[in-house]
Design a protein around this nucleic acid. Sequence first.
DNA 1: CAGTGGTCTAGACCACACC
DNA 2: GTGTGGTCTAGACCACTGT
Lengths: 252, 252
Amino acid sequence: MPASSGTVPVPPFTLDRSSPVPLYFQVAQHLEHAIIDGTIPPGTLFHNEIQLADELGLSRPTMRRAMQHLVDKGLIVRRRGIGTRVVQPKVRRQLELTSLYEDLSASGQKPTTELLSFGTAEADEDVAARLGVTVGSLVARLDRLRSANERPIARMTNYLPERFADLDPDVLADQGLYQVLRTRGVVLHSATQTIGARTATAAESRQLGEPRGAALLTMQRTAYDDHGAAVEYGTHVYAASRYSFEIDLLTP
Amino acid sequence: MPASSGTVPVPPFTLDRSSPVPLYFQVAQHLEHAIIDGTIPPGTLFHNEIQLADELGLSRPTMRRAMQHLVDKGLIVRRRGIGTRVVQPKVRRQLELTSLYEDLSASGQKPTTELLSFGTAEADEDVAARLGVTVGSLVARLDRLRSANERPIARMTNYLPERFADLDPDVLADQGLYQVLRTRGVVLHSATQTIGARTATAAESRQLGEPRGAALLTMQRTAYDDHGAAVEYGTHVYAASRYSFEIDLLTP
DNA sequence: CAGTGGTCTAGACCACACC
DNA sequence: GTGTGGTCTAGACCACTGT
């Protein structure tokens, strides 16, 4: 029986060889759409990669690269001796390094920010260690109250290297911090965050409009640029009754 | 001035071309160690990739693949026209799909498990939706209390497809759930989890040895195998005073 | 056994950054 | 300009899977 029995080709589409978009990426994107919109249902087995490359007029390495891209996204699984199979598109995307502002905007909510304070402070031991500066040196500090749909949802304190002490308060009230940093030419590279919980203090209850002793989600995050230098350290608390973290993972 | 001014080669080592370990992986691993142990300090610029390939007697694609591996791990940054630079090795690893049992073991603590109940139950609407079965059908259910160093730290309820209803209770008390599933041939592929917080009920306070009204971390997780089928749905609560989630991220 | 993906090679041309 | 990484090609051999 022929090898292609029960297997499918890449759905027809036109490669644009004059486009600046790499060929492997055009193929990967086309397949990703086809998988997500159900044109290629879960469980489908593809033709083998040499055949696929021929069908699209590509070399095998380029075709492989497109498929590897989909493996990394968790959309397909490849097994030597078996073939390439579509899995359930359950995983939306890797956890991304976004700010709460962008999270809320993306989910269709309407974030507003109240800038409680903004200035410089001396780094204590914790802040100094996180930002990689010496204890007592000056750092920028901002306190913000973030609301979604007119209700306060998070209290955020952030520390940044002193060179950011001249940020525009109006802009900070208007955009997410990461958005502001990007306009300053900061390229974020990585971050480490710790998520925990504790009960609210009286002041926090008042600020967030939560009952006394309510549970709060806490998050501390240090973000690094692509030189490995810390650009931000934040300690945030969230009203747990109205906020939680969603994380999609792939096995390594 | 020569191109190699201020740039470094791959530290000397011997490739094993007869090993089943791929060459690109041998190179990547060697470089990873050298970066992590400080032999190649942060900020270092490598020779260009053609030169590196020559030095090791490899082709350029193979050398590129090794470097790409390190980019994915967040250890180096590459810029067209500039070169390849080592960043601070702050990011330990991507968030991994591990069980609490493995987390505790890895961190040198001594996990123990009390199996509170184990049997079958009818799936309610929530469980049915998560596991992709029909409401009212039978599923396996287990309740466990996990302790670290003799102190209870988490209360865990898990639901699995009915085919796992014959797991050995003794083994469940002895190992992590994911470990047990792997011995049954389950290949985990992905998961989605939601992390939140709430205050403890009276029963939870008692079980976890926390004060009344203490804050708890909550986590719901659905895990999928490589066919896209749900293999586990769990709702867990953790004593927030002694447990938090650590997450390292790279920008996409 | 035949078929699959995994690895590796030796070239080529291009886009971008810096001088 | 020159040098860098990014992309692409056309082959080759190997390891694993299922019959």
